[in-house]
Write a protein that binds this DNA or RNA. Structure first.
Lengths: 347, 347
DNA sequence: GGTTAGCACTCAAATGAAACGAGTGCTAAT
DNA sequence: ATTAGCACTCGTTTCATTTGAGTGCTAACC
């Protein structure tokens, strides 16, 4: 930002730091007492006035202190803020809560969300590993009653999906078993989003027609792979109520309503899966309900491929630096665990 | 209740009805104007005074009206309240939102919770079908990488669970396949809670030792069947904020914190699975965070066997009669859908 | 020139007095 | 047994006042 000299930046930083801590508009006197800044309050006032004119500060009303704008936070995270590192204690805390025997993806995701929200005191969300980026590993048809079977799909990331389907009445266990084998053989390692219709004739030939059934079944496979809405694990939903800016019941309500809109969060997180870290500040959010929030995300991987992402939702005055550090570290931990689960062992 | 004559009951009912509607302490004049009650406010005051002495009413402060106590609600639901029926519109609304192609248990449960909270405007919860009451149908080991496999378990209620396990390095796909078959054959229709260790020697013989592996695997099966904490589907978590008694930020916070304690809800719902309906009013709740709430539950079944339960959480002044009607109807609908999914067809 | 002391000014928030009014309890008349 | 009447209570609302944190501006200072 060329329009700010070093002194203005330093003052702005002091303001932001203070505001992040106290959530109260900060006045010139507070800053003038700051050890690193040897200036009188009057000088600070002049500088603040400039900063306001440039759009970095806002005044709730004339006789109040000033509050950083979204633009200020943006500048802050882009240029001013320095990366912080987690303390050994914090790392240990995280490790301790990851160390238990975790063998189900569901459980791991839940645990991750829990740790995230507990260590940051914000609301956290974790996108479950996304199935459509992933290859099919096994299909099993399990009979559950006359004319019904459970279709179970397993992918290489250990995600399972299931659905009840009708089966022809003349199809017995052995046939289902055979069909499971054929399907598994045919579809293994194909990506689920291109289980295309060209397969059907081929399958029909092998299984002895039942075309409509095959059709219906493949359709179910396709549909099962759609995001179902249960794809985002949230934790610490009420944490935000502890921050003074959300003591207003209506703000709290709209925040809580916003995070109950799983679709929105889902979209945010899938978008965020493309970049290692992302920070979205206040009005930069698409949802107007979240215009007083910031969202920070990070991705996690299995091996080298990005599998999903996770994020922190908090007030715009959140401690970006720490949150980034936490997300980075936990992202790494999660990637390690998942990778370990699915890749061969090196021993 | 022998200590209340008919007139007192009628007055109490009028008070409760009014309070359910308005959430404001109700005064003697309001009741004296009630069409069914041809009495002056002074008489009502005397009666109210009696009712207070008997513990059915409470006064927030001297110059306020009166508020029904938990004891009053208890009397109300036990003796006074009359069953209400849903309107055709409401039934239709419910049917419409159940009618879509629903083939995954997860999806159905989510849908149920959604409908429940939307039609009642309270917070709803649905206990997912509980696996330990249920019989095993299929076990599949799917290799995911060197030395690792995904263990997939399917039960007769169409519930799947999965976990990553280590497998001996010298075990190949065919062997896994064979083991899956043997396990399925051995364990099918046995209840999961008694997959006992007597099986291990038998299996070891058939699969060619690998005792430690079999041990670990069966242990995983057992563990997978434990409740994981993701067993309760909630919906409409913020609905309660629309009720005036929760405009106090602290009350709202404690309510929201209470329903984030999945363990508590899980326990409530499993306990409630034993009876067709249950009503728990205010202080009757174990959790002190919920002492201002009431919980109404109903069970659902597959065929004739109770599979789980669902409930509504609202303020103590909730519309018990309507909630019961809704729960009854939705419970029935859900039972039908699930039963239909798993039982043979009658056509 | 930039910096600062000083002072008048602003305005949200806190304080407090007064009026209001919904509701009660009690008493005496019906 | 019921009710009209009335004094009393006490939370809520209203409005004016005070308070104080903070500003902007000006004039003096280095």
């Amino acid at each position: 930002m060329p329009d700010l000299d070093i002194r203005k930046i330093r003052i702005l930083q002091a303001i932001i730091d203070d505001y992040i801590l106290t959530a109260a508009p900060v006045g010139s006197r507070t800053i003038s007492k700051h050890p690193d800044i040897g200036l009188s309050s009057a000088t600070i006032r002049n500088e603040m006035s400039d900063l306001e004119e440039l759009g970095y500060l806002e005044q709730p009303h004339t006789s109040a202190g000033r509050v950083p704008s979204d633009k200020a936070y943006r500048l802050y995270v882009n240029s001013i803020m320095q990366k912080s590192r987690l303390s050994a204690d914090e790392m240990q805390y995280i490790q301790r809560h990851f160390s238990n025997t975790l063998d189900e993806v569901e459980r791991i995701v839940r645990q991750t969300a829990w740790v995230l929200s507990n260590i940051t005191n914000y609301t956290s969300m974790v996108l479950k590993p996304q199935i459509h980026t992933v290859k099919l590993k096994h299909i099993q048809l399990v009979p559950v009653s006359e004319g019904k079977a459970l279709l179970v799909i397993v992918t290489d990331a250990g995600i399972t999906r299931d659905a009840i389907i009708r089966i022809p009445h003349d199809m017995d266990v052995t046939q289902l078993e055979r069909l499971s084998h054929i399907l598994t053989a045919k579809l293994t390692n194909s990506r689920l989003d291109n289980v295309s219709n060209v397969l059907i004739p081929e399958l029909a030939a092998q299984i002895g027609e039942h075309r409509e059934f095959l059709n219906a079944m493949l359709e179910t496979v396709q549909r099962s792979m759609q995001p179902t809405g249960g794809n985002v694990e949230l934790s610490g939903k009420t944490n935000i109520l502890n921050y003074p800016e959300y003591n207003d019941i209506d703000k709290a309500k709209s925040f809580l309503a916003a995070i109950e809109e799983q679709d929105v969060l889902y979209k945010m997180l899938t978008d965020a899966s493309k970049v290692e870290f992302s920070i979205t500040i206040g009005n930069e959010n698409n949802s107007t309900d979240m215009k007083d929030c910031s969202v920070v995300t990070a991705t996690y991987k299995v091996g080298d491929v990005s599998m999903g992402s996770m994020g922190i939702i908090g007030p715009t005055r959140m401690d970006y630096s720490r949150v980034l550090a936490v997300l980075g570290y936990i992202g790494k931990s999660l990637s390690d665990i998942l990778t370990n689960m699915f890749e061969e062992e090196h021993d």
